[in-house]
Design a binder for these strands. Structure first.
Length: 136
DNA sequence: CTTCTTACA
DNA sequence: TGTAAGAA
């Protein structure tokens, strides 16, 4: 797909997709006309990159993190940085908190939707004071 | 009309 | 990151 479609699907401006490429976060192929050609799986990858960026992580760290996104278990770390480790641990914990919050909110919404459903059922059928077949 | 590159705020 | 200009 071309940049426009990916931008719409991944909720990221084309400008940023080109930037990610410049930062070595994604490597789209080129069409004959020079247009960037993105693979389907990049839709999710871009969303994840966005999430990492929104979390405040710099592109260079994200670049090192990408292999983990693809579940590559054997990652080679050049320079074990304890500061980086602390940063990532804090980030991970913040994410966990947000996920828990989102989970609670989602469940609350689910319960409300169910309540809406019941209210709708009650309103749709014309208040059966006494159902014809049941009365005797 | 869509995308590309380059440049600037 | 957003926007602009000129080319394809």
């Amino acid at each position: 797909m071309r940049i426009g479609e990916l931008a719409k699907r991944a909720q990221v401006p084309p400008r940023m997709l080109r930037y990610y490429e410049e930062q070595g976060l994604i490597a789209p192929r080129r069409l004959d006309n020079g247009y960037r050609d993105y693979d389907e799986y990049l839709v999710d990858r871009v969303r994840q990159i966005r999430g990492l960026l929104d979390a405040g992580l710099p592109t260079r760290i994200i670049r090192d993190l990408l292999p983990c996104i693809d579940h590559t278990e054997d990652i080679v770390v050049a320079d074990p940085d304890s500061e980086l480790r602390a940063l990532l641990e804090r980030e991970r914990d913040r994410m966990t908190e947000r996920i828990e919050c989102l989970t609670r909110n989602r469940d609350a919404i689910s319960r409300y939707i169910e309540a809406l459903g019941r209210a709708e059922d009650r309103a749709s059928d014309p208040a059966p004071k006494e159902s014809p077949v049941t009365s005797h």
